[in-house]
Design a protein around this nucleic acid. Structure first.
Lengths: 333, 333
DNA sequence: CTGTTAGCGCATTCAG
DNA sequence: CTGAATGCGCTAACAG
């Protein structure tokens, strides 16, 4: 059945040329007689030869792999970033080797060690919080490193993201301008989501500057989910029914909040304002589209991949790309 | 800055031992004096040595990579499968190299060619529809191959999934038992989603056997989404307001249908039955949980990875694992 | 336009 | 318990 796999040398022999000639044909480099090219291609087809990229990479020190580290795949935001990365990588023919950290910096350290062992051409890591060991390894690797999502951090090499603190501030300004005064906050477990916390801080800061503050806040002990948003809003309103707008840590939580309102007979915006973060499809297709902030997740992934491939040797000094965000008016706040 | 990367030989020299000894220490094989082990480990730490897995794989012909091909990351179902795969791979220390086909069999052919070039220990492909070339390559590779999602297909090696036709049949039986008689179907673009079509066929078959049939059906021309479900149900009801239950191609579409009902003032179940497929979190956290069928997507991924690692050489004849499905009663049908 | 020589970094023999 | 020789499959550098 599975005989010894076919190698360059097998093809070369059969085609009556040297190995390097086959190699050149396959890579389309160097001057080549059209005749030999065709002959070699025919043999390649015929034998069903599959090149061994491991050997190629080892010999040329030019890798076709890109290491990617993401915190999770449960939150739809990260698959969207991955989609962007894939789109950005596509033209170059490079493949992503992915790992998941489960929001654990120690796991990230191990993961990034493993990924670096494949000698990737570049690393794309989601998040900017690392253990000292991870940071050192990434820096010392000498390859290009993109850190994604948050642009308020010092880059190892390239940072692509938005200002989460700025988003929190914009949320406060927007809602104050719309006339809301009695603010509440409903969040999920922050211990691993530094960006949610930054948005919270931005929100509070701007509220304070406007002489306001949160009249109530509640954090779910679970990760963000529609269910958590629904349950947490319910609890919060049970103790503090007098708030007029609730800012949620993200859209998943906010959609849950909208569902609670439907159940409880509260009209969004009219009886209670609800505001999210991310601009997910689900929020925008609610009977009343969710008021929220759109983060450009796909763009973040694509830009990072493109930028990195554009210059494959790491430049001096870092670069930060701010992909910005937009307020989606919606109909819930 | 980035000097020549440190190799085994550098470590060996510094530790005053041979390369192979360092190699053994790192892999934890063979008899080793505790003293040398500690000394080598110290040098490894000190130099920040990162093993080159490419070279290791080339030398040993034992790969630490697993190729994974998925149709898309936009549909939350596939990230969940990926999560399962990662979980199943975790213990073995293998890394997934991922590619996306965008539901295009030709793209899959190219992708699988590229993935095989990394000499993976195994391939996990989502979907069982392949071009002849792809099938031949997977078969000839000699490595283990898992095809995921659908269990009604002849396996190349291992198939892990559920019966989509069976799910369609179960849907019909369940809804007939609940007293529904005037059935409608709302779907998305099937041309690339053979499994949705299989469910549809199972549904129609069992309806026919019960002397019933679809009184109306409508397919959106776009891919599945909440928005498409909402718009398509709206159109369908405009022409056929007399249906008493609508079966959707999946939960995304069905949740959109529920949103339409909210807007139109139709009470789910009471005025119109709605039934989905997948059992996504979003459907279950609606004010009235969606009636649907739970597919075990995470399990499919995890089982596939585990099964494949359990026996890394491809056995004779194929195997099919049916992960089943369950009806979620819900409150919408 | 094509071939020869050498080596990428590691692991598998087989000796000691 | 440790080491020396050899080769994995490919490509860079230099001939011719």
């Amino acid at each position: 059945m599975h005989a010894r796999p076919i190698t360059l040398s097998d093809v070369a022999q059969r085609a009556g040329v040297s190995e390097i000639t086959v190699s050149r044909v396959l890579r389309g480099v160097g001057p080549l007689a059209e005749g030999t090219r065709l002959r070699v291609m025919a043999v390649v087809e015929e034998m069903g030869y599959v090149p061994n990229r491991l050997a190629g990479t080892l010999a040329s020190a030019v890798s076709g792999l890109v290491g990617v580290s993401v915190p999770s795949l449960s939150n739809i935001v990260f698959p969207e970033v991955l989609r962007g990365i894939h789109a950005g990588l596509e033209a170059s023919g490079r493949q992503a080797v992915i790992g998941i950290t489960d929001y654990d910096l120690q796991a990230e350290e191990t993961l990034i060690g493993s990924l670096l062992a494949w000698k990737p051409a570049a690393m794309i890591v989601v998040g900017s919080d690392h253990t000292p060991v991870t940071s050192r390894r990434l820096r010392q690797s000498g390859i290009r490193v993109a850190e994604l999502m948050d642009c308020d951090v010092p880059p190892i090499d390239l940072v692509v993201g938005m200002s989460h603190k700025g988003a929190g501030q914009a949320t406060a300004r927007h809602l104050i301008a719309r006339g809301y005064r009695r603010f509440a906050y409903v969040g999920h477990d922050w211990t691993t989501d530094r960006r949610a916390r930054l948005r919270y801080e931005g929100l509070c800061e701007t509220l304070r500057e406007g002489g306001l503050g949160l009249v109530a806040e509640m954090l779910s002990s679970s990760v963000s989910s529609t269910e958590a948003g629904r349950a947490t809003l319910k609890s919060l309103l049970a103790t503090r029914p007098d708030v007029d707008v609730v800012v949620f840590s993200n859209d998943d939580m906010a959609v849950g909040g909208v569902f609670h309102c439907m159940t409880a007979g509260l009209r969004p915006r009219t009886d209670l304002g609800l505001f999210g973060f991310n601009g997910l499809e689900i929020g925008q297709s609610l009977p009343q589209p969710l008021s929220t902030i759109r983060s450009n997740r796909y763009l973040i992934g694509r830009l990072a991949a493109e930028k990195i491939l554009q210059r494959i040797d790491r430049p001096e000094g870092g670069e930060v790309i701010d992909t910005g965000f937009e307020i989606c008016e919606g109909e819930t706040a």
